[in-house]
Write a protein that binds this DNA or RNA. Structure first.
Length: 593
RNA sequence: GGGGUGGUAGCUCAAUUUGGUUAGAGCACCGGCCUGUCACGCCGGAGGUUGCGAGUUCAAGCCUCGUCUAUCCCGCCA
């Protein structure tokens, strides 16, 4: 027994007890005589005291202690002298006078400042990942992992209480077209053949519905071989759910309860119930995004008719070409400098905006703008009223294709909110986005692609439209759950009729042979009595990160990859022995340097 | 694949108008002093291929080119 208590356990009522503690030396304060050591473990910190008058031998050993040494100590809990309490520690009213010490391990000087009291001070990511086991000793990051663990426990409870079964699905799967690039695993016993790691257990969970399992959930590892971002890792975890005999309302209602009962409990708050819903069309129009951040207004207005029918050639030609003109009133931003506006212009250019038109509303409500000569005073005033601007506001306008006008404006909206500090991290705004388009035209592929995935059912009233080949206006029974501008979950009602599924594959450009080869087993399964079903997947890492106000999910994953999808700690991916490659019948054809 | 930003001591950063003594500071580290500190304090010390490679120049951390790398973003991510 190395310890009787953790380093976060002792309180005033323990005074007088003889205790043993074990942990890491967080910090040593040597006053010449008495030596103080903050001993740290997962549970907290406790100050232990080495008094030369109490025990000279032990004191001499304490003299050798350095940061991150691993020790076990035994001593007597004492009330700290008057005025010597430390309010920052839960154990701060006591300390432990040490009679016995054992150095369990020494430690080299840490390349990371583990005991840095400034929580926001972090070394660069490369160094942190290289010494991740040291990085993970920091209390703030341990807190993140522990929170995720607690959340998972409640997730399991919730689904079990609601009749869901936790069923594992394969990690070695069949590679399928559509979607992200697959991670491939060569088969040794089947030369020239490959498994794919699952992008999600989508098909398996649907097969479980066909199998009659009725309600399935799984904490599922998913893999996507695409470029990384702060909120995207090549492997990540989903709370994956599927239910039989449900419509989309049933799924959303279940997750309304999930948010209230699980997230509300873990983060100790009361979410709105039900969570508000907004159509995709409304979100794109008003917020220029399918994941609107509703912590602030800054609503976008369509001013195509107003602005297009003026003497301003740019607006005029965009409208005639079938494009849109969108505007918004940036409240209290009349004093934006020319440099700020230039930066905003550059910002929206990244999203395809050809330009950014700005107008100031002066104290007397008069509109002032560089392009004023193209508008009448009435037209300017009409624009001002249309976007809801008044004195001391700045107005911004973007003209372009509907997609560019919407998304560039949406990004402008976010950037203004950042500048004005409107993204309050303590506010949580949930919203369901519904009625997503069924298909999306891909310029790079030159064809329509599924916006969600190819198993998504069209809205019943749009089925005929889809079957007749109108893909543009066909909406799906798909829904995303959005929190503070972050998509934390998404799902759909699935197609359960084999003929509809076949048709969708065909519309996506897959011929009969390709469907048979890639999805044959899946399509066959639907011929044997598939129940209507639907579900949803929650991004576990992203939910926790977003709830904690972090943008990067890396601080919630014990061993994440860097942006090159490699691990600076274990140097993976790495080269392998030639014999290993021979076993799996692989020869390398590497790009020239 | 493309763009932005960064790479200087173990760590976090600095180094004046394109350049001008021996590249600095804080923390960490090592030594000394200090008996109630808690980011202890005081004194001293050590620590540098300025990512790498070329180039321009009398002179490069600083300018140019290439390259590597990290990060953020666009594309991509059903």
């Amino acid at each position: 027994m190395k310890r009787t208590h953790s380093c976060g356990a002792l309180r005033l009522e323990d005074v007088g007890k003889t205790v043993s503690l074990a942990g890491w030396v967080d910090r040593r304060r040597d006053l010449g005589g008495v030596i103080f050591v903050d001993l740290r473990d997962k549970y907290g910190k406790t100050q232990v005291v080495f008094d030369p008058e109490r025990n000279q031998e032990v004191h001499q050993i304490a003299d050798q202690l350095r940061n991150e040494y691993v020790i076990t100590v035994t001593g007597v809990v004492q009330k700290r002298p008057e005025g010597m309490e430390n309010d920052k520690l839960s154990t701060g009213k006591i300390d432990v006078k040490i009679d016995k010490i054992e150095i369990l391990n020494t430690a080299e000087t840490s390349p990371l400042a583990i005991n840095d009291p400034k929580e926001e001070s972090r070394e660069n990511d490369d160094l942190r990942l290289r010494y991740r086991y040291l990085d993970l000793r920091r209390p703030w990051i341990q807190k993140n992992l522990i929170l995720k663990s607690r959340f998972l426990k409640e997730v399991h409870n919730f689904f079990h209480e609601n009749g869901f079964e936790d069923i594992e699905t394969p990690v070695l799967c069949k590679s399928t077209p559509e979607g992200a690039r697959d991670y491939l695993v060569p088969s040794r016993v089947n030369p020239g053949r490959f498994y794919a790691l699952p992008q999600s257990p989508q098909q398996y969970k649907q097969l479980l519905m066909i199998a009659g399992m009725d309600r399935y959930y799984q904490i599922a590892k998913c893999f996507r071989d695409e470029d990384l971002r702060a909120d995207r890792q090549p492997e990540f975890t989903q709370i994956d759910v599927e239910m039989s005999f449900v419509d989309q309302n049933d799924v959303m209602e279940l997750f309304d309860r999930f948010v209230t009962e699980v997230m509300g409990k873990v983060w100790d708050f009361t979410p709105p119930s039900p969570i508000r819903r907004m159509t995709y069309a409304e979100a794109m129009l008003k917020y220029g995004s399918d994941k609107p951040d509703l912590r602030f207004d800054l609503e976008i207005k369509d001013v195509t008719e107003l602005a297009g029918n003026t003497g301003f050639g740019v607006f005029n030609s965009v409208m005639k070409a079938g494009g849109k003109i969108r505007g918004l009133a940036a409240k209290g931003c009349v004093d934006f400098t020319r440099k700020q506006i230039d930066d905003l212009t550059a910002h929206v250019a990244r999203y395809g905006a050809k330009g950014l038109v700005w107008m100031r509303v002066k104290e007397n409500d008069e509109v002032e703008t560089q392009v004023g000569k193209f508008f009448t005073v009435d037209q300017l005033n009409a624009l001002r009223d249309a976007v809801g601007a008044s004195a001391s506001d700045m107005m911004f306008f973007i003209a372009g294709s509907e997609k560019v006008a919407a998304t560039a404006m949406g990004q402008l909206r976010l950037e203004i909110a950042r500048i004005k500090g409107l993204m309050n991290p303590s506010v949580r705004e949930f919203v369901w986005i519904t009625e997503f388009p069924m298909f999306e035209y891909s310029e790079t592929e030159g064809r329509y692609m599924s916006m969600h995935h190819p198993f998504t059912s069209p809205m019943p009233e749009h089925l005929e439209m889809m079957l007749s080949g109108n893909l543009k206006d066909c909406n799906a029974q798909a829904y995303d759950l959005v929190l503070n501008g972050v998509e934390i979950g998404g799902g759909s009602v699935r197609i359960h009729k084999p003929d509809v599924q076949e048709k969708v594959f065909r519309l996506l450009g897959l011929n009969e042979e390709q469907v048979k080869e890639k999805f044959g087993f899946f399509v066959d399964a639907f011929k044997f009595g598939a129940p209507p079903h639907g579900g949803l997947a929650f991004g576990l890492d992203r939910v926790v990160a977003t709830m904690e106000g972090f943008e990067s999910i890396r601080d919630f994953i014990a061993f994440p990859k860097n942006t090159s999808a490699s691990s600076p700690m274990d140097q993976s991916p790495s080269e392998v022995d030639l014999t290993q490659l021979q076993d799996i019948h692989i020869s390398l054809n590497l790009p020239k340097k």
